[in-house]
Design a protein around this nucleic acid. Structure first.
Length: 308
DNA sequence: AATGCCGTCAACCGCCTTTAG
DNA sequence: GCTAAAGGCGGTTGACGGCAT
C-alpha cells in the first residue's frame, strides 16, 4: 500500500492538479490518485483546488470592511455555515471565512481572558469616582505581569494614553467587545481623546461620536445584544455611564459626548504618538487593539458566541 | 541576537450528506 | 432499500512570519 503524501503542495503537484481540472473539470478527484498522477487523497486534491487554485480567488488579500461586515451579518443570520457565507463573498472560500472568524474570536477571547485575581492584588492605581460606580466591573491593572508576578512587581501605567483610557471602562465593555460591534466602520463610532490646552492631563476630555448609528436591515441581521446596544445609545441611563451629564435628547446625528477624564497614575499625559494635532482618533477595533493584552483581565467574560 | 508570543493561513481530520451501483 | 464511495463541511492543528522583549 502506497503512502499518501501530506503537507504543503509543491508547484509540480499544483500543475498536475490544474491539468487534470482543465481536462476533466473539477470532479473525479479520486481518479487523480488512482491514475497515479498524485499521491494525494481525492479530498486533499479537491481542497487544494477549491482553496488555492480555483480562478478568481482573492488569495493574500485582506478582508475589506465591507466583507467583514458581510461576514458578521451573515454569521449572525446563518451561524457557522461558512460555505454558505462564502457564496456571498466573491473570491472568498469557506476556509477564508472560517479563518477570518476564528482569528477574531481568538483575539476577543484573549482580550476577555479573566484569570482569577489573587487576593490583595487589586490595589487600584486607577481608582476614581467614575470607576467606583460600575457594577461588576473592576478596575483594570495595567502591568503586563502575570498573576504570580504581580505580587513582586509594581503595577504601573507605562502609557499615559492608556492611563486615561481607563475611564473608557465606563462603557458597557462586554457589549462593545461583542465581535458584532467591533466592526462598525470607521465613521460609525468614533472615540476621540482631546487634551485641553489648559491642562492636558487633568482636564482631558474623551468624546464619543455617533455620526451614523447603523440600523440592522432586519431583525436577523444583528444579534439581539447588538441591537440592544445600539438602542441603548439613545438611552439616558446608558449615557450616564459616560459621565452622567449628557441628556439623551441631545443626541442627534454626529452626537458627541464629552467626558471629563481624571488623569490616573503618574504618567505625563502629553507624550505619546497619539497626540498628533492634540487629538487622538481611533475606531473601536483599532482602539481595542491598542490596549495592553491584560487590560481586561478583570472583566466578566462574555457568554460564548453560541450563546449570543 | 535570541527568545517567546501572537496572528494568519494552509492543510488535515472526522463527521455528515449525497450519489452510484 | 441498502451499502460503499465520493464529496462537502466545520473544527482543529501546525508551520511560519512579524513583533515585542
Amino acid at each position: 500500500m502506497e503512502e499518501m503524501k501530506k503537507g504543503p503542495w509543491k508547484a509540480e503537484e499544483d500543475e498536475v492538479l490544474i491539468n487534470h481540472v482543465n481536462k476533466y473539470g473539477p470532479r473525479d478527484w479520486s481518479s487523480i490518485r488512482s491514475k497515479g498522477l498524485l499521491q494525494r487523497t481525492g479530498k486533499s486534491c479537491r481542497l487544494r483546488w477549491v482553496n488555492k487554485l480555483r480562478p478568481n480567488l482573492k488569495n493574500g488579500v485582506k478582508f475589506s470592511a465591507e466583507e467583514e461586515r458581510t461576514v458578521i451579518e451573515l454569521q449572525a443570520q446563518f451561524g457557522n455555515k461558512w460555505a454558505r457565507i462564502a457564496t456571498y463573498l466573491p473570491g472568498r472560500t469557506d476556509n477564508d471565512v472560517k479563518n477570518f472568524w476564528s482569528s477574531r474570536r481568538k483575539r476577543l477571547a484573549r482580550i476577555l481572558q479573566t484569570p482569577t485575581p489573587p487576593p490583595n492584588s487589586q490595589k487600584n492605581t486607577m481608582e476614581g469616582p467614575a470607576l467606583r460606580d460600575v457594577p461588576s466591573l473592576e478596575a483594570p491593572k495595567f502591568s503586563s505581569s502575570t498573576d504570580e508576578e504581580s505580587s513582586s512587581k509594581t503595577q504601573s501605567c507605562s502609557s499615559p494614553y492608556i492611563e486615561n483610557l481607563a475611564t473608557i471602562r465606563m462603557v458597557p465593555l462586554p457589549e462593545l467587545l461583542n465581535p458584532n460591534l467591533l466592526n462598525f466602520e470607521q465613521n460609525q463610532l468614533r472615540v476621540e481623546f482631546i487634551p485641553t490646552e489648559k491642562n492636558p492631563c487633568n482636564d482631558s476630555q474623551l468624546q464619543l461620536s455617533f455620526p451614523n448609528i447603523p440600523q440592522p436591515q432586519s431583525e436577523l441581521a444583528l444579534p439581539v445584544e447588538s441591537q440592544e446596544f445600539i438602542g441603548r445609545l439613545g438611552n439616558s441611563d446608558f449615557l450616564d455611564w459616560f459621565g452622567g451629564h449628557t441628556n439623551a435628547s441631545e443626541l442627534g446625528d454626529d452626537a458627541q459626548i464629552p467626558i471629563v477624564l481624571p488623569c490616573f497614575g503618574q504618567g505625563n499625559c502629553q507624550n505619546g504618538e497619539e497626540r498628533e494635532n492634540g487629538n487622538s482618533v481611533t475606531t473601536p477595533d483599532s482602539f481595542i487593539d491598542d490596549f495592553p493584552m491584560d487590560m481586561f483581565d478583570q472583566l466578566e467574560p462574555l457568554p460564548s458566541p453560541s450563546e449570543w
